[in-house]
């Protein structure tokens, strides 16, 4: 991406109004106002005022605001006298190395991802089976109705028996699919 931005700094906070009028005219890309309190490390970080024209894309707004936020953060850290690398190290939370111990005393590493992945995969498999069999059931019923097979079948069985048989049959087909894919996954 081409970035060709000229930066201009205004010392007086009175310049905010002129920045707004420049934005309205479309002569500048964006404007921001930083007060002394924002940069004071002893005070809480407050919201910085960002002024943008209505035509500026959300991506550009993100880029400009991220640069300004990061700059304010860097300045606050620099003013506090703390080394940034040390601050990152101090704020870094230690990762727990979890070991599950069974009643028999054996140890096993905790794998949280796997514990979530396996039920997720089975849920997805069940979803596939339900949707595939429901689709088959609907298609074949319409097909039998259209080529008069249904009329022949209805001479031998009641509509309730016919549909119950279809649903039962496709449930069995889904069960076979589930067993096949599930078995393959377990294997």
């Amino acid at each position: 991406q081409v970035i060709s931005v000229e930066w201009r700094s205004e010392k007086s906070l009175d310049a905010v109004e002129s920045v707004k009028s420049e934005l309205a005219k479309g002569s500048i890309l964006a404007g921001a106002a930083i007060t002394g309190d924002m940069l004071d490390p002893a005070k809480d970080a407050t919201a910085l005022a960002l002024f943008i024209p209505s035509s500026l894309s959300p991506k550009h707004v993100r880029q400009v605001s991220r640069a300004l936020q990061q700059a304010v953060e860097d300045e606050r850290i620099a003013r506090s006298g703390i080394d940034r690398a040390m601050l990152t190290r101090l704020a870094d939370q230690p990762e727990p190395l979890t070991t599950r111990i069974s009643p028999a005393g054996s140890e096993a590493k905790e794998r949280t991802e796997l514990r979530l992945l396996v039920p997720g995969a089975f849920m997805f498999l069940l979803w596939i089976c339900v949707f595939t069999s429901a689709n088959y059931l609907l298609t074949t019923t319409i097909e039998e109705k259209s080529n008069k097979v249904m009329e022949v079948l209805l001479a031998a069985a009641s509509p309730m028996q016919l549909l119950a048989g279809k649903i039962l049959g496709y449930s069995m087909v889904s069960a076979v699919m589930l067993l096949m894919y599930g078995g393959l996954g377990i294997a």
């Binding site: 000229e6 201009r8 205004e10 500048i28 964006a30 921001a32 002394g36 990061q70």
Partner: peptide, 27 residues
């Protein structure tokens, strides 16, 4: 789209512009 234009920062301390410029130009 290219990001082209002028950004005006009202900052009495005059310290934000060099930092923001460096951050924005870093890929």
């Amino acid at each position: 789209p290219p990001l082209v234009g002028t950004i005006v920062v009202v900052d009495p301390s005059d310290t934000i512009v060099p930092r923001a410029k460096a951050i924005l130009e870093t890929p």
